[in-house]
Write a protein that binds this DNA or RNA. Structure first.
Length: 557
RNA sequence: UGACCCAUGGUGUAAUUGGCAACACAGCAGAUUUUGGUUCUGUUAUUUUAGGUUCGAGUCCUAAUGGGUCAACCA
C-alpha cells in the first residue's frame, strides 16, 4: 500500500503532540455534554461526530454527560430522546450515561475549598447591582462591598445557603478572581445560585445549584476527560476553566474550541425552532423539514450520510457555512448504494397500448439495485393499460425531449419499446389518455428489435398498481441564511412550498409490505422513505432528496 | 471604544510545519448508460492589503482592513 499522507485537523494535531510527549500516558477520553432541555440538531450531530470519532481514532472513548445544572429548564423526557438520537447516529458512549448532577456533592466540596482559600465569597447584592458592578467590555468592573468578607463568614453563609435558609436570588457565591479583567467572565463570576426547585434527578436534595463554569470543567476533571472539545463561543471561558483546575489542584482536562458548523437553509437556534413548531410552520420537532436529528431521520437521511457529511465539512476555527448540496450529495451517494429501486408514478396519466392483448398480464423481471450485484430481482406486472408520469408526455415537444411524444419511440423501463400514436384530450385541453403501440420483440432482456430510443420511462400497471401518498419536501426557507439580518423576521423567508402533498400517486404493488423507515429510490424521481404516518392500507412516502436532474437544469437555461 | 478568535477557488478543508497551492462538493464540456440516475474523462476558478525577516513566505513578525465573539443567578 502506498504511504498516504493523511492530513490532520488541528485537534488531531494537538492530540498527536500529546501522544508524542506521553501526556496522560497516551490516554484519550472525550465527552459529549448536552443539556437535557431540547432536541438535538445538525450542529449537535457535528459535535457528536467530532467527539466520538476523534476519541475512537486514537483508541479512546467518549463519555455522554448530561449537563443538568439548571433544574428550571431540564427534564428527563429530553434525556431519552438525546440518547436515542446519538445511538441512531451510530455512536456508543462509555458505560452508563453520566450526569453533572452526580457531582453536586463533590462540586459543593470544591466550593468550600475555594472559600477556605479565600478564592470565593458570598455576595448579597441584587442581580441588578451585580450587573452594574460588572462594568462593560471596555470598562473595568467594580468590586462588590461583600468581596472582603472573612473566610469564616463566607463559610457560614454558604452552608446556610445550602441549608435553604435564604430565599431564591438573595445571595450567590462568586469566585474571587479579578473585577478589572478585560475578560468579562473573569470578573468574579457567579458559581452558585439559590434555586428551590425540583431537579429531575436529585429531586429536592439541593436548593443551590452550580453555574456552568463551576460544573462543566470540574465534571471534565472528575471524569478524567483529556480533551474537552467545544465550540468557539466558549473560548472566553477557557481562562476560567483553567483557573478553577489550577486553584482546586484537580486533574487538568484541556478545553479545545472548534468552529461550529452552519448549514445553508438550516437554522439551529432553539428559540426559532420552537417558534416553527409552536406556530405550526412544521408538524413537530421531527417534521422532515426540521434540522433536528429526529427530523432528518424521518426525512430519510441515512445516519451514515450525516456522518460522512460532518467528516467532509471538516474541522477548523473559522466561521463557516456548508452548502446544502454537500449534504445532499452525501445522502445520494449513500442511498444510491443501499436503497432498493421501485417504480412509482407521482402524477399519473393513463397510457393505453392499443396493440397489446386486452386481458393479458405479463410479469417482468426488474433488478432491485443495479449498484448491488447481490440485490436480487423482483417481478412487476405489465399490461395493456398503464400509468406514466404526466410530465413524461408532451404533445408538442422541443427537439431534446426524449420522452413520450406522438411519433416518437421510447423505452419503458424493464419492459417494451413503445411508439406514441396519439392522445385523447378533454374539453379544457387536459390530457386524458395517451395511446401507443408496442414492439413485441423489444422486451427487456430479449430485445431483438434493434431500436435504440433515447429515453426510458418509469410506469406502473393500471390494474396492479396501488394508490399511495407522497410528500415532496423542499428547503424550509427561500434563502440560504434566513437569520443573517437581525431586523428581518426569519419567518418571512419561510418557504410555503417546502411541503407538497400528492395524494393520487400510484406505486408498484410490491411496495405495499414496506415498513416505516424503509428507504427506496423511486426510479427517475429521487430517494424516498416510508413515513411513520403510513397505515397498512395507506402508505405515505417522504421524498428524502431528488435525483440529480441535468434535464431540468437544461430546460431552465 | 477594551479583550479575544479568525482570514486560502463559488463553498468547505488541506499544503509533509519556511521549499512547485491541492482534495471534495458545486459549475462547465464530453463519453458511457434500458433511470436525463450511476460511472468515467477533461476543464474553469484560490492565498484580504501594506510593510518586514529570509536565498525562498499561504505558513514567521508588525500594522491595516474585513468578519466573528464577550456585559443571563442559561449552557
Amino acid at each position: 500500500m502506498e504511504e498516504k499522507k493523511e492530513s490532520l485537523n488541528f485537534i488531531e494535531q494537538i492530540i498527536e503532540e500529546d501522544l508524542a510527549s506521553g501526556k496522560h500516558n497516551g490516554r484519550v477520553l472525550t465527552r459529549f455534554p448536552p443539556e437535557p432541555n431540547g432536541y438535538l440538531h445538525i450542529g449537535h450531530a457535528k459535535a457528536i461526530c467530532i467527539n466520538f470519532e476523534t476519541a475512537k481514532k486514537y483508541g479512546g472513548t467518549t463519555n455522554l454527560r448530561f449537563d443538568d445544572t439548571n433544574p428550571t429548564t431540564e427534564d428527563t423526557e429530553y434525556v431519552d430522546n438525546i440518547m436515542k438520537d446519538i445511538r441512531w447516529l451510530g455512536f456508543d458512549w462509555n458505560g452508563e450515561a453520566l450526569y453533572a448532577s452526580d457531582y453536586f456533592g463533590q462540586l459543593y466540596e470544591y466550593a468550600l475549598d475555594l472559600i477556605r482559600k479565600g478564592l470565593a465569597y458570598v455576595d448579597d447584592s441584587t442581580p441588578d447591582e451585580i450587573a452594574a458592578m460588572k462594568g462593560t467590555p471596555s470598562e473595568p468592573g467594580k468590586s462588590s462591598p461583600f468581596k472582603s468578607r472573612s473566610v469564616e463568614e463566607n463559610l457560614d453563609l454558604f452552608i446556610r445557603m445550602k441549608n435553604g435558609e435564604f430565599a431564591d436570588g438573595t445571595r450567590v457565591l462568586r469566585a474571587n478572581v479579578d473585577m478589572t479583567s478585560p475578560n468579562m467572565l473573569m470578573r468574579d463570576p457567579i458559581i452558585y445560585r439559590i434555586k428551590k426547585e425540583h431537579h429531575h434527578r436529585t429531586g429536592d436534595e439541593w436548593c443551590i445549584y452550580p453555574m456552568y463554569d463551576f460544573a462543566h470543567g470540574q465534571s471534565d476533571s472528575i471524569e478524567g476527560i483529556t480533551h474537552s472539545l467545544c465550540s468557539l463561543e466558549f473560548i472566553h471561558h477557557r481562562p476560567l476553566y483553567d483557573w478553577f483546575i489550577e486553584k482546586l489542584g484537580i486533574f487538568p482536562s484541556r478545553q479545545i474550541e472548534f468552529a461550529r458548523m452552519n448549514v445553508e437553509y438550516m437554522i439551529t437556534s432553539k428559540r426559532r425552532l420552537l417558534k416553527l413548531v409552536n406556530e405550526g410552520y412544521v408538524s413537530g420537532w421531527d417534521d422532515p423539514r426540521m434540522p433536528t436529528i429526529s427530523g432528518m431521520r424521518r426525512r430519510g437521511y441515512p445516519a451514515a450520510a450525516i456522518r460522512t457529511f460532518c467528516d467532509k465539512a471538516g474541522v477548523a476555527r473559522r466561521e463557516n457555512t456548508i452548502e446544502i448540496n454537500l449534504l445532499e450529495a452525501c445522502v445520494r451517494d449513500e442511498m444510491n448504494r443501499t436503497s432498493q429501486r421501485a417504480m412509482v408514478v407521482l402524477d399519473p396519466v393513463k397510457l393505453v397500448i392499443t396493440n397489446y392483448p386486452e386481458f393479458e398480464i405479463e410479469y417482468l423481471e426488474a433488478e432491485n439495485n443495479p449498484e448491488d450485484p447481490d440485490g436480487g430481482h423482483r417481478k412487476i406486472a405489465f399490461g395493456r393499460e398503464l400509468y406514466i408520469e404526466r410530465e413524461d408526455f408532451m404533445e408538442d415537444a422541443p427537439p431534446k425531449y426524449f420522452r413520450m411524444t406522438p411519433g416518437a419511440d421510447v423505452r419503458l423501463k424493464h419492459a417494451y419499446i413503445l411508439r406514441c400514436t396519439g392522445v385523447d384530450k378533454g374539453s379544457n385541453g387536459e390530457i386524458n389518455t395517451v395511446y401507443a403501440t408496442y414492439y413485441s420483440d423489444s422486451r427487456s432482456g430479449s430485445d431483438t428489435s434493434g431500436i435504440k430510443p433515447k429515453g426510458t420511462l418509469h410506469w406502473v400497471s393500471a390494474q396492479d398498481a396501488m394508490e399511495c401518498e407522497v410528500r415532496l419536501y423542499d428547503r424550509l426557507f427561500t434563502v440560504p441564511d434566513p437569520v443573517r439580518d437581525e431586523d428581518t423576521d426569519f419567518l418571512s423567508f419561510y418557504n410555503k412550498e417546502s411541503l407538497r402533498t400528492l395524494s393520487g400517486a400510484r406505486m408498484e404493488s410490491g411496495l405495499q409490505h414496506c415498513k416505516p423507515g424503509d428507504q427506496f429510490q423511486f426510479l427517475r424521481q429521487g430517494y424516498f422513505c416510508a413515513d411513520p404516518d403510513s397505515t397498512p392500507g395507506h402508505l405515505v412516502f417522504n421524498r428524502t432528496v431528488g435525483l440529480k436532474d441535468s434535464f431540468a437544469k437544461e430546460v431552465k437555461s
